[in-house]
Deep mutational scan, measured.
Amino acid sequence: EPSQADLDALLSAVRDNRLSIEQAVTLLTPSSGGGSGGGSMDAKEILTRFKDGGLDRAAAQALLAGRTPA
Score class of each variant (00 low, 15 high):
residue 20 S to L: 03
residue 10 L to P: 00
residue 63 L to P: 00
residue 29 T to A: 09
residue 30 P to F: 08
residue 34 G to F: 03
residue 27 L to T: 04
residue 35 G to C: 10
residue 15 R to I: 13
residue 44 K to R: 10
residue 43 A to K: 06
residue 11 L to T: 01
residue 1 E to F: 09
residue 45 E to K: 04
residue 25 V to P: 00
residue 2 P to D: 12
residue 63 L to T: 02
residue 54 G to F: 11
residue 30 P to W: 10
residue 29 T to Q: 14
residue 65 A to F: 05
residue 16 D to L: 04
residue 43 A to F: 15
residue 58 A to F: 08
residue 8 D to F: 07
residue 57 R to Y: 15
residue 9 A to M: 13
residue 62 A to K: 13
residue 39 G to T: 09
residue 31 S to P: 10
residue 21 I to N: 01
residue 51 K to F: 05
residue 61 Q to Y: 07
residue 21 I to E: 01
residue 23 Q to K: 10
residue 35 G to A: 08
residue 31 S to H: 12
residue 68 T to R: 06
residue 68 T to A: 07
residue 29 T to W: 06
residue 16 D to P: 00
residue 48 T to N: 06
residue 44 K to M: 07
residue 25 V to G: 03
residue 48 T to C: 05
residue 60 A to Y: 00
residue 61 Q to K: 15
residue 63 L to K: 04
residue 10 L to E: 00
residue 24 A to P: 00
residue 45 E to T: 07
residue 59 A to M: 12
residue 50 F to N: 00
residue 9 A to T: 09
residue 36 S to Y: 14
residue 40 S to E: 06
residue 52 D to R: 05
residue 7 L to Y: 07
residue 7 L to N: 03
residue 20 S to E: 04
residue 24 A to C: 05
residue 53 G to W: 02
residue 49 R to D: 03
residue 27 L to E: 04
residue 28 L to P: 01
residue 58 A to K: 10
residue 24 A to F: 02
residue 36 S to C: 14
residue 42 D to W: 09
residue 69 P to F: 02
residue 18 R to C: 09
residue 65 A to K: 10
residue 14 V to A: 01
residue 57 R to T: 07
residue 56 D to I: 03
residue 6 D to C: 15
residue 28 L to N: 01
residue 53 G to H: 04
residue 33 G to W: 09
residue 61 Q to S: 15
residue 61 Q to H: 08
residue 57 R to F: 15
residue 36 S to F: 14
residue 49 R to P: 01
residue 48 T to K: 07
residue 66 G to T: 10
residue 15 R to K: 13
residue 52 D to L: 07
residue 43 A to R: 06
residue 30 P to K: 09
residue 29 T to P: 10
residue 31 S to Q: 11
residue 38 G to N: 14
residue 9 A to D: 13
residue 34 G to L: 13
residue 5 A to M: 15
residue 42 D to P: 06
residue 45 E to G: 07
residue 13 A to F: 04
residue 27 L to A: 05
residue 52 D to F: 05
residue 20 S to K: 03
residue 30 P to T: 11
residue 46 I to L: 03
residue 16 D to C: 07
residue 49 R to S: 05
residue 29 T to F: 13
residue 28 L to D: 01
residue 29 T to L: 07
residue 32 S to H: 12
residue 12 S to L: 08
residue 45 E to R: 04
residue 47 L to H: 00
residue 13 A to P: 00
residue 70 A to H: 03
residue 53 G to T: 02
residue 36 S to R: 10
residue 68 T to C: 11
residue 65 A to Y: 05
residue 39 G to C: 10
residue 63 L to E: 06
residue 7 L to M: 08
residue 18 R to F: 06
residue 15 R to S: 09
residue 24 A to R: 00
residue 23 Q to P: 01
residue 17 N to S: 09
residue 24 A to S: 02
residue 1 E to P: 09
residue 22 E to M: 06
residue 23 Q to E: 14
residue 54 G to K: 15
residue 14 V to R: 00
residue 15 R to H: 10
residue 14 V to T: 02
residue 42 D to C: 14
residue 12 S to F: 03
residue 36 S to L: 10
residue 65 A to T: 09
residue 6 D to P: 06
residue 6 D to Y: 14
residue 55 L to G: 01
residue 31 S to V: 07
residue 36 S to A: 15
residue 41 M to R: 06
residue 5 A to S: 10
residue 32 S to D: 14
residue 58 A to T: 07
residue 14 V to H: 00
residue 11 L to A: 00
residue 33 G to K: 12
residue 59 A to T: 14
residue 34 G to K: 11
residue 53 G to N: 04
residue 50 F to V: 02
residue 1 E to N: 13
residue 48 T to P: 01
residue 11 L to R: 00
residue 53 G to C: 04
residue 37 G to Q: 10
residue 63 L to D: 03
residue 66 G to M: 06
residue 48 T to M: 09
residue 34 G to H: 07
residue 62 A to W: 03
residue 69 P to S: 11
residue 22 E to G: 04
residue 28 L to G: 01
residue 8 D to G: 06
residue 58 A to L: 11
residue 46 I to G: 01
residue 14 V to P: 00
residue 25 V to N: 03
residue 29 T to S: 13
residue 29 T to E: 11
residue 45 E to Y: 04
residue 52 D to C: 13
residue 16 D to W: 03
residue 34 G to E: 10
residue 40 S to I: 11
residue 26 T to N: 13
residue 30 P to Y: 11
residue 58 A to G: 06
residue 33 G to H: 13
residue 19 L to K: 02
residue 69 P to I: 15
residue 59 A to E: 11
residue 26 T to R: 09
residue 11 L to W: 02
residue 18 R to V: 14
residue 22 E to T: 06
residue 17 N to D: 08
residue 28 L to C: 04
residue 24 A to M: 03
residue 18 R to I: 13
residue 60 A to E: 00
residue 28 L to T: 02
residue 28 L to A: 02
residue 70 A to I: 10
residue 34 G to P: 14
residue 35 G to R: 06
residue 6 D to S: 11
residue 37 G to N: 14
residue 55 L to C: 03
residue 68 T to G: 08
residue 56 D to W: 02
residue 46 I to K: 00
residue 24 A to I: 03
residue 50 F to H: 02
residue 55 L to R: 01
residue 55 L to E: 01
residue 3 S to K: 10
residue 48 T to E: 11
residue 27 L to M: 11
residue 52 D to V: 05
residue 66 G to D: 15
residue 16 D to T: 06
residue 52 D to K: 06
residue 31 S to Y: 08
residue 45 E to D: 15
residue 40 S to D: 11
residue 38 G to T: 12
residue 47 L to C: 01
residue 33 G to R: 08
residue 1 E to G: 10
residue 57 R to A: 12
residue 64 L to F: 02
residue 21 I to A: 02
residue 64 L to G: 01
residue 36 S to P: 12
residue 66 G to E: 13
residue 11 L to G: 00
residue 25 V to Q: 03
residue 21 I to C: 02
residue 51 K to C: 04
residue 18 R to M: 10
residue 18 R to Q: 11
residue 18 R to L: 13
residue 52 D to Y: 07
residue 30 P to Q: 11
residue 13 A to I: 02
residue 68 T to F: 15
residue 13 A to W: 05
residue 66 G to P: 07
residue 45 E to Q: 09
residue 40 S to P: 09
residue 62 A to T: 09
residue 26 T to A: 15
residue 56 D to A: 06
residue 69 P to L: 08
residue 19 L to F: 03
residue 3 S to E: 09
residue 41 M to H: 07
residue 38 G to Y: 07
residue 19 L to H: 01
residue 67 R to E: 15
residue 36 S to E: 14
residue 1 E to Y: 15
residue 70 A to V: 11
residue 24 A to V: 05
residue 46 I to T: 03
residue 19 L to W: 04
residue 41 M to I: 13
residue 29 T to I: 09
residue 51 K to P: 01
